[in-house]
Every structure is written in structure tokens, then in C-alpha cells.
Amino acid sequence: MSGNFWKLGIAAALTILPASIASAQEALDADQAAALCHGGGSICVSAKIPVARTTQAVQSWMSPDVGAAWAAGYKGKGVTITIVDDFSSSSRFSGNFGIGTRYQRHGEWTREEASMIAPAATIRSKDFSTGSAVPLASGRNVLNLSYGMYANAGYSVNQIGWAKEEQSIISYASKGSAIVSKAAGNDSVAVGGVTSGQQDYLDLALIGKPTAIFVGALSTNGTTSNKAQLAWYSNYAGSDPTVQSHFLVVGVEGDKTGLYGTSFAAPIISGYAAIIGSKFTKATPVQITNDLLNTARTDTLVNYDPSVYGKGEASLSRALAPVAIH
């Protein structure tokens, strides 16, 4: 690896983003905490493994919007969702999205969730440990990133020597060639904020990119009569208007699935994007992104504040609806 590629000798941690539920956290085993070094040398990324969950087989974890789309047999046809995640480690954990308790890797969970929301979207799996560039499929693309790239705080994004994997993702978000659904993180800080002396530089690199969406978690799906609030672990939008304008929240009802964390918020937005993309077959990723952002609801949230909820709770039904009709 050339010196130019690795601009700085920092240690970036590749971290998947389930919530760290102290009372239920599993101890990390050596494999789970193993370093995944992109090119060795100065920058290593390490995978942190999801927490333990209580499994509770229910099928009502989706918002009514998602449930309706699913019940209607909506397929998400013509859109490819690429799940960039862990598909190779020995780390597995239990959960149940309503189709039976399973014991799966993190990526297998996020893939399953996205595929349940947009059942006929083409789902691709990209193991994040490879570091190779993420290829786009022909047609419309959504990238699901339920992980972060952590390193010591204080560097600028330009100082990070990204692997080709993240280079490609950031490039797609910059050029608007794919929708990038990025889990906001589970450290109860603002997007890109410092936690334990580290920052998620992938968050920072995606700020201001036209097709990047940061996805926070609500503890429930919100309604006007039963408003939702941010899950205790979820990162929030923060004071940066640029982040606020690309920040959405969705319900992650872990009490029903046993799966907590913004890792399981991002696939919902990926699925929404696929559904919108299959309705508006000529829409660009930028248009789909803006549609999702501009139709988010604020009246389903407790004490809506853009610094917490960004644009608000994503609403599939409103994203599919006209602005006006006559």
C-alpha cells in the first residue's frame, strides 16, 4: 500500500452499529473484535459485534406504511440494494423479524430486513472486510451501510486514507449515483460526534453528499396519537443544518424483534428507497433521496426538534403520494 494512499497513520475501526445495550451485551470474543486491516500498516479497521438481544417472535415491528406495502406484495422491482456489511465473520446473534428465530451474522440480519421491506428488490451482499470497491448494478442502486469507520477524533476527512470500498461509496454519494443509507450510530451523540475519543469518519465523509441519508432509530414507530421518541442509544442529527437536512428517523422496535440499533434503521430506509425507486422508474437517486427527506413527518414525534430528529420520521405513504392532484 502506498504512502499516498494511507495519508495518515490512524486506526480506524470498522464498526457495525447495533445498540450497545449494557444489560444484555454479549462479551466480545476475539473473533468479533478482530482487526480487519485494510492493507495492514497504519490503518486497521476492526469489527465490533452486535449485542445480545432478547428474542420475541412478533410480526408487528414494521411501521404501518411498511406493513401495508409488504401486505400488498409490493416488490421493489428494478432496484438493487447492496448491503455492505459483515457476511464472513463467525459472529452471529439471535433475532426474529417475525419469520422465526434465527442466529445470523450482522449482515445477514440487515439483508433480511431490507429484503422483507422491499421483497423483490435485488439484494446484493458485499462483505465489508474485503475493502474492495462496491460495484453498482445497472439501474437504480441503494447502498446500505449499517456500520461506521472509527478512528481517533480530531482529523479531517481529507486526512483519512480510505479503502477502495469506502472511496467508492463516498464517490457514489457525492455524484448522486446511488442512494446511501447510513446508520447514524449508537453512541447517543450527534452524527460525526466524538465518543470515547473517536469519531465515525464515514459519517463525516458523507455529510453534505446529495444522496447520503443518515438514519437514526426511534424506540417505536410513531403515530400522531402515539408519538415516538429517539431511542436512547441512537445518534441524533446535531446542530449542523447540513446533517439535519439529510437525517431521518424510523422505528426500530427491538422489543418485538430482539434487534436493536441504528443498524436496523438503515435497512428500512434502504427498503423505502427501493420501493420509491420502483414506483418512479425514471427518478434519479437524488430525486428519491429528496423525496424521502421532504416527506418525513414531524407530527409523529415527541417534541420534534431538527437537531434531534433531522427531517423527521420517514413516511413511505407520503413519499409515494402526490404533492397535489387534480
Partner: peptide, 25 residues
């Protein structure tokens, strides 16, 4: 039919009843 304005996603001639559903306009 109706004319539905989907904002940035364009304006389409649609079935009035299905304009907000999942079917392509």
C-alpha cells in the same frame, strides 16, 4: 385520469384513485 404532481419526481397522468399507491404512475 387525474394529473398528479409529485414535486421533484415529476408530473404524471394517473388513475386518481391509485396515485398514492405503490404502482408506477
Amino acid at each position: 385520469p387525474c394529473v398528479a404532481d409529485y414535486g421533484e419526481l415529476g408530473t404524471y397522468s394517473v388513475n386518481c384513485r391509485l396515485a398514492a399507491g405503490e404502482t408506477a404512475p
